[in-house]
Amino acid sequence: MRLKQSKSTTRTFVLCSALVLGIASSVATAAESVGNTTEIDHALLWGRDIDQISAVMAVKLGFQVRPGRSAAGVANRYVRMADRSYLELFGILRADAELDPGMQADQASLRGGAGSRTFGLRSSILDQTHKFLQQQAFVPTPIFTASLTDPDGDGPARPPRWRLFAFEPQPLSSHLFFIDYAALDATPGRVSDERIAPQHPNGAQAVTGLWLLSSDADADRRQFERMGLAGATPVRIPQIAAQGYCVPMGEKRVLALQPDGPGVAAQALHSGGRQILGLSIAVADIGLAKRRVERGYETELASYRGLLGEAFLASTQSDLGLLIEFHASSQAVACAKAPG
């Protein structure tokens, strides 16, 4: 009798162990799929008003700013890159503007000022990513879609132009959403727009990095890892006195940073709280880009060797509420260690 019980107990243990291992393997596979199919899509950048932010981006920094729409008292415009990444610019047109929950959250932090608190990651497996994040105990919202009568879509008989979900509560120090887009008909107008939109006087080619600032960089790193966005490496950015982690997103990266003593990062966190402190932009010719920005701001700017090679910081904090780092286009790995 004892022998039979022992065999039964052993069999149960083996079955339970196999089940646990199977679940762990399934979770690891799902996490890997999310990590392999997620990339930086865009950041939302608020100006004090839409004309102010458009002028700064175009005149001082040398970007081409493309028209957007005006709806319910909020206007948007775009800075689109050749690799599909972009910046979405916002400005409030009137005091009674109707803001969606994400806009309300941004404005509660910005209090009418300029800056960025929200970014989007593109997922080509949006439904699977949504399910995986639920299983990981995050609380994603339902998946929202563009209106079927969206003037920039293909009409009510076709898939919505975009689909996205956010989180409630938010898992990171800055607001995050996941988004994907439908393949639209290649009309002559769209073909022309896609050819023209990425042509920037400053030579910009891609949004290659987002800099998240908080008082606890490791908390953001751990949350990214739970999302399947693993492989973070320690980094330090002496130019702004910040340290933290570089989280790879394909060939790009999100930096989770915290202040490393007195300096730009500490001042920004003190005055504005958790935020997107900076953006990294790859340019075709770093020398020409630097000269254009120096002319725009009428000041000389220092060059340095950063995470992605030769770079410089534009003097944009007072205008845009964040920093823009321009760096030379390269084939550097996503989270290479900075020199020194």
Results as ranks from 00 to 15, higher is better:
70 S>T: 15
34 V>Q: 15
83 D>K: 11
5 Q>L: 07
197 A>L: 07
231 G>L: 00
12 T>C: 01
275 Q>W: 06
235 V>D: 01
200 H>S: 08
128 Q>A: 15
253 R>V: 14
227 M>D: 00
203 G>D: 05
237 I>F: 14
333 V>T: 10
80 R>M: 13
336 A>K: 03
58 A>I: 04
296 G>W: 02
124 S>N: 13
262 P>E: 11
324 I>Y: 04
295 R>M: 06
295 R>I: 00
110 L>G: 06
244 G>N: 13
63 F>Q: 00
229 L>F: 07
143 I>L: 06
82 A>N: 13
158 R>A: 10
79 V>G: 06
94 R>E: 14
195 R>S: 11
140 P>M: 10
293 V>K: 10
292 R>W: 13
320 L>Y: 00
176 L>C: 09
120 G>N: 09
130 H>K: 13
144 F>A: 11
103 M>D: 13
234 P>F: 08
175 H>V: 08
261 G>P: 11
168 E>L: 09
131 K>H: 11
17 S>G: 15
243 Q>Y: 05
147 S>C: 01
146 A>P: 11
65 V>C: 00
104 Q>K: 14
334 A>I: 04
217 A>N: 06
303 S>W: 02
88 E>G: 12
28 A>G: 04
122 R>Q: 15
109 S>I: 06
225 E>C: 02
276 I>T: 06
334 A>C: 10
328 A>L: 09
226 R>E: 06
46 W>A: 02
58 A>L: 01
318 S>F: 04
173 S>Q: 04
136 Q>G: 00
298 E>P: 05
57 M>L: 13
219 A>Q: 15
50 I>M: 12
64 Q>Y: 04
92 I>T: 04
41 D>L: 03
240 I>K: 05
307 L>F: 08
48 R>E: 14
156 P>H: 05
112 G>F: 01
248 P>T: 05
168 E>Q: 13
216 D>E: 15
304 Y>T: 08
119 F>S: 03
132 F>W: 08
208 T>N: 14
28 A>S: 14
295 R>D: 11
303 S>P: 00
340 G>L: 10
90 F>T: 00
125 I>T: 13
9 T>F: 08
265 A>I: 01
246 C>G: 15
209 G>H: 07
160 P>T: 02
103 M>K: 10
147 S>P: 07
334 A>N: 12
20 V>I: 14
135 Q>I: 01
266 A>S: 10
307 L>G: 12
145 T>V: 06
205 Q>S: 10
277 L>W: 07
233 T>P: 02
186 A>L: 01
265 A>Q: 03
17 S>A: 15
240 I>E: 02
119 F>V: 10
315 S>C: 06
214 S>N: 12
131 K>E: 12
264 V>D: 04
221 R>T: 07
161 R>Y: 00
8 S>N: 09
248 P>F: 01
171 P>D: 01
58 A>Y: 00
138 F>N: 03
